[in-house]
């Protein structure tokens, strides 16, 4: 295994720390959003702080839940349904 590969493996051991840093960064971004706003709102609501945070979070959650839990059970068939390398 290359040195670089080992470094990347080490990242797995640090995932707790990385998680904490990630949450801190997200919080930092929302705080920054309180002070930094768009010059002109593209839509009405993006003038409010945290709009894009909520948009990303809700959008992502809704997409995964709707597609994996509701749509996929309806439209999915067996792996070899079309005899292709699905």
């Amino acid at each position: 295994m290359s040195l670089f590969g080992m470094l990347l493996t080490q990242l797995r051991a640090w995932r707790g720390v990385i998680g904490v840093l990630f949450f801190l960064a997200l919080a930092g971004l929302v705080v920054a959003n309180v002070f930094i706003r768009p010059h002109e709102a593209e839509f009405v609501y993006d003038a409010y702080a945290g709009f894009w945070a909520v948009f990303g979070l809700i959008g992502g959650l809704a997409m995964v839940i709707i597609m994996k839990k509701i749509v996929q059970p309806m439209i999915s068939r067996g792996d070899d349904y079309y005899e292709r390398n699905s």
């Binding site: 997200l26 971004l29 894009w52 945070a53 990303g56 979070l57 999915s76 070899d80």
Partner: peptide
């Protein structure tokens, strides 16, 4: 900032959904 907010919180959504979004060997019509 807008891009980082959008992508950061999409990432958070994935974090919450990581067990649901697990890929399955299916053909989607």
């Amino acid at each position: 900032l807008q891009s980082l907010l959008l992508l950061g919180f999409s990432g958070l959504a994935f974090y919450f959904m990581r067990n649901i979004i697990t890929p399955h060997a299916k053909t989607n019509l």
